[in-house]
């Protein structure tokens, strides 16, 4: 199978006359980190919402694993291997870290309702298998020692790691990350970059919406730039760093005269 796992074809979406997405075509393949940058309001988050089934596009098509998935509900898309995170992350009150990861295995439960409620052996076997796997995943994301703690006692960065753990638990092929490092310090960003690269090495394709340039350049294989709902440029990180179109779109024309993106983009802030 040579076609990219996720492909959007000419997606368009308007909110009350404003074009949030205009003719957006892009691809994300397994084992690739595709970063999406652009000023606020460029349509990046709308694109994530549309791909993950929370919003319906006005026109265009989305292919997942070669099949059109327009109109599918978000929870059906998870079964086809698509997972996403949200900008605002609040842990679910009353769940432990381990239980939170088990939530991600929801689609892989097969025990019947009766088995589940009455805790019959079929359910218990499945449960212990899933708990084992959840513990493995937690160790991978560096939360192995926190499995019994309440999810809401985790720090912001640990909460992000927990979200990644949930995504790993869904066994997603394509992962959409919506500003995963917002509000994080340098060490935490480094840890998350490792996690993203780990996901990639496991064969996941990742679509990353982010503003944090240092993070993007440390993980991205490809970068697309959006402005006013359009993809204005797309290419290897190095090429994007030097692109004039990007500099004017993303940083405004005033920055162009001050030596280009490289200065701004080089550092982490």
């Amino acid at each position: 199978m040579n076609a990219p796992y996720l492909e959007t074809r000419s997606l368009s979406k308007a909110f009350g006359g404003v074009n949030a997405l205009a003719d957006v075509s892009l691809t994300v393949d397994r084992g690739e980190v595709h970063a999406l940058i652009g000023p606020n309001g460029a349509g990046k988050s709308t694109l994530i919402s549309v791909i993950s089934g929370f919003e319906r596009p006005d026109s265009g098509d989305i292919l997942l694993g070669g099949k059109s998935v327009i109109g599918r509900r978000p929870y059906d898309l998870v079964r086809l291997g698509l997972a996403r995170t949200f900008q605002s992350s609040r842990p679910v009150v009353g769940l432990s870290v381990l239980e939170s990861v088990l939530l991600g295995m929801h689609i892989h439960r097969h025990a019947s309702v009766l088995d589940t409620i009455l805790r019959l052996p079929a359910y218990r076997r499945e449960r212990s298998r899933q708990e084992q796997r959840a513990l493995d995943i937690l160790r991978t994301v560096g939360l192995g020692s926190r499995s019994r703690d309440r999810a809401r006692d985790l720090s912001g960065a640990q909460g992000r790691s927990l979200e990644i753990a949930q995504i790993v638990a869904t066994e997603a092929v394509i992962v959409l990350l919506d500003e995963p490092v917002a509000g994080m310090g340098a060490t935490e960003i480094g840890l998350l970059a490792d996690l993203v690269l780990h996901l990639r090495s496991e064969g996941c394709g990742i679509l990353l919406v982010e503003h944090e340039m240092g993070f993007i350049f440390s993980v991205a294989d490809r970068i697309s730039v959006m402005d006013f709902g359009r993809v204005v440029d797309s290419g290897r990180p190095q090429a994007i760093r030097e692109s004039k179109v990007v500099q004017s779109a993303y940083l405004g024309s005033s920055y162009e005269q001050q030596g280009g993106v490289a200065d701004v983009v080089g550092g982490s802030e």
């Binding site: 909110f15 919402s49 929370f54 919003e55 978000p74």
Partner: peptide, 8 residues
């Protein structure tokens, strides 16, 4: 009201 956006 404006049409509520699905699940947002």
């Amino acid at each position: 009201g404006a049409r509520i956006r699905f699940m947002s």
